[in-house]
Design a protein around this nucleic acid. Structure first.
Lengths: 170, 170
DNA sequence: TTCATTTTGAGAATGAATATCACTATAGGA
DNA sequence: TCCTATAGTGATATTCATTCTCAAAATGAA
């Protein structure tokens, strides 16, 4: 297993405008209130950190970006935000769980993940219509063959990020 | 997180014939010898268990199927077998890592995984040419957009297995 | 058989994730 | 505004899959 998960890559993160930001927090508040949950300062910090990072982030990255929210609080709230469909857990390729904003909140459409096998970095990648069509067809085939009811898919494209490739060329 | 990972589903496992079995162990022995590793009795037990189960299995399932190989031995050897490209780790949807034989050894061609979100069961699903073509195209697009060198992909189709759906209908 | 090397396996250590619980903050009624 | 019930916080303890340790056992070569 690799060492500490790095934050050594600069993807072009689309920083939300103030208006989009207000919109985001409004939606989160709504999603939480539906489940009788408050949108507390710490939860807001976490959501803000997720939006700022703009890619699946480890607990360490999150805690740092959410200026030092305690670990226990971060985990507890990520779990609550997960149940409220605000946050999605991404099973990391390295051993580290990562968290990202739900698609409907991040402003992105349906997307998949590109994982660096060397440093564990995860970035988002848009899904193409052809790919989604092929996935839907596969899901149909599986339902017929195995009786499995496929409702969702998770795709990881594994490779090497630019910085790791550069670092390897030494 | 769910409770203990279940073994509560009967997929039609294609049991290898004695000849295929000899072939399998021969290949494993070769792959190991390339890395100056012996094909010991415990490693053989593990490989046999993986072949018998015919789907990504948890440590618990493996240890049981490999009649009680100690945990530490199982983990150590799975790691060694992994480096020798005999075994592949499958990042479980629940918190449990699963292990399967490499595609070239299991007799299957390239395949993906179908995961039950309820009990964590994982079975294999064949990949269709259309899907693979779409994946290759996506990989190309990502290489162009982000500089990522995509060499592999992992696809999980998430849903509900028949037994869990039946159990839910109560 | 002997020796050097590898493998084993029981138990300890690691560390991400979760649970505990006394304390604090908040909402809403009086 | 003051109370009080309820929800949230955060330091700490616990859990548990996985990895590490190391003395003993197995293996292969000479």
């Amino acid at each position: 297993m690799g060492s500490a998960p790095g934050s050594g890559y600069a993807d072009q993160v689309v920083r939300p405008s103030p208006a989009e930001d207000r919109e985001l927090h409004g939606q989160v508040a709504l999603l939480l209130s539906t489940r009788d949950q408050r949108y507390t300062a710490q939860r807001r910090q976490i959501v803000r950190a997720l939006a700022k990072l703009g890619r699946p982030a480890t607990i360490g990255e999150l805690v740092e970006a959410a200026n030092g929210v305690p670990l226990s609080t971060a985990y507890r709230n990520l779990s609550i935000l997960g149940e409220a469909n605000v946050v999605r857990r991404v099973g990391g390729a390295d051993g580290f769980t990562r968290f990202e904003l739900a698609e409907q909140l991040s402003g992105q459409h349906h997307h998949h993940h590109v994982v660096c096998e060397s440093c564990g970095l995860v970035i988002d990648a848009a899904a193409s219509p052809a790919l989604e069509a092929a996935l839907a067809e596969t899901a149909r085939a599986i339902a017929k063959a195995n009786g499995f009811d496929v409702t969702e898919h998770r795709l990881e494209l594994v490779g090497r990020c630019t910085s790791c490739r550069d670092a390897a060329a030494s």
